[in-house]
């Protein structure tokens, strides 16, 4: 039957052309599919982006700059930078440690550990905030003790930082685990055999190999940290000028019908999102080039 067609006929030109025609769609189907996809992405991706910037500048540059220079806006920007500035480095150190343990060693309970690290991604942001209220709030388990010692976590900056750490917890670890796994451990073993110390091996051999994945993980972690809304909203208490981050400030402005000001602050976060996507594209492009290069090296090695 048909299975008798040998694969080598693929190299003959006419059959190649027949095969291509048989594995692609008619022009009509092709153009309709492309049209639907582009329309879908235009409605759900381009329109929201376009409306953010068009509303931000709707009342002119003067209003735009004035909205960003308001004291409440500035303090929201400062608090957002502070929360991300604490959460991202902490999660970076954790991500590197977790990825090292998981990618380079075999141990009992490893897959459970991976599931637990991913857990914050599957918890609703609102619940992520609530768990800290139940622990540190006045009604919470540690609340009375904290109140006696005049320590404020909920409705204060530490609560916002904690909620931000929770929602961005898995990002760096998740980016690094597959990279460190794929890399194997021959290079590290060689460095150790040549007398390098453990830290030296890590910083000079392991880290350079994963640096682009690390950059991407940090950028993604940072984008989520600066943009988190639900979890931070629960623990913040919305004290103007003190516990409002940029997303919470946007909510207040919007609910007060100050749309231009709300979208002006939102445009900063939209720019952050676009920068994140740009970095992602560059990192992926570099990774692909690196892979192609190492494939070429392998081939040359085989020929030699």
């Amino acid at each position: 039957m048909g299975t008798a067609i040998p694969l080598s006929t693929r190299s003959l030109l006419p059959s190649r052309r027949i095969a291509t025609a048989a594995t692609s769609e008619s022009a009509l189907v092709r153009w309709s599919l492309m049209g639907i996809a582009v329309l879908f992405l235009a409605v759900f991706i381009f329109l929201p982006l376009a409306i953010v910037f068009s509303q931000a500048f709707a009342k002119g540059m003067g209003v735009y700059w004035a909205s960003l220079r308001q004291p409440d806006a500035l303090s929201a920007i400062r608090l957002t930078l502070l929360a991300a500035g604490i959460a991202v480095p902490l999660n970076l150190v954790f991500g590197v440690a977790a990825a090292w343990a998981i990618a380079k060693f075999e141990f009992v309970g490893k897959s459970l550990l991976i599931t637990l690290i991913d857990l914050p991604f599957s918890v609703s942001p609102v619940v992520s905030g609530l768990i800290y209220v139940l622990l540190f709030g006045l009604q919470g388990l540690l609340g009375p003790w904290l109140a006696r010692h005049d320590l404020h976590i909920i409705f204060a900056v530490p609560g916002i930082v904690l909620a931000t750490i929770f929602v961005t917890f898995p990002f760096v670890a998740r980016e690094l685990i597959p990279l460190l796994q794929a890399q194997g451990q021959e290079e590290e073993e060689a460095a150790l055999a040549l007398g390098a110390s453990g830290w030296h091996t890590f910083f000079r051999v392991s880290l350079p190999n994963i640096k682009w994945g690390l950059v991407y993980g940090v950028i993604l972690c940072n984008a989520r940290a600066m943009g988190e809304f639900g979890a931070v909203s629960v623990v913040s208490g919305h004290i103007r000028g003190r516990t409002n981050t940029m997303p919470l400030h946007i909510e207040i402005l919007y609910n007060e019908y100050r749309f231009s000001a709300a979208f002006a602050v939102a445009s900063l976060l939209a720019l952050l999102a676009l920068t994140t996507l740009l970095v992602k594209t560059v990192v992926e492009w570099r990774a692909r080039r690196q892979r192609a290069e190492s494939a070429r090296w392998d081939e040359e090695g085989q020929i030699a």
Binding site: M226, F229, A273
Partner: peptide, 10 residues
């Protein structure tokens, strides 16, 4: 990448 509050008002 886009913060949810920004997506919400947009």
């Amino acid at each position: 990448a886009l913060p949810t509050a920004v997506a919400g008002i947009a």
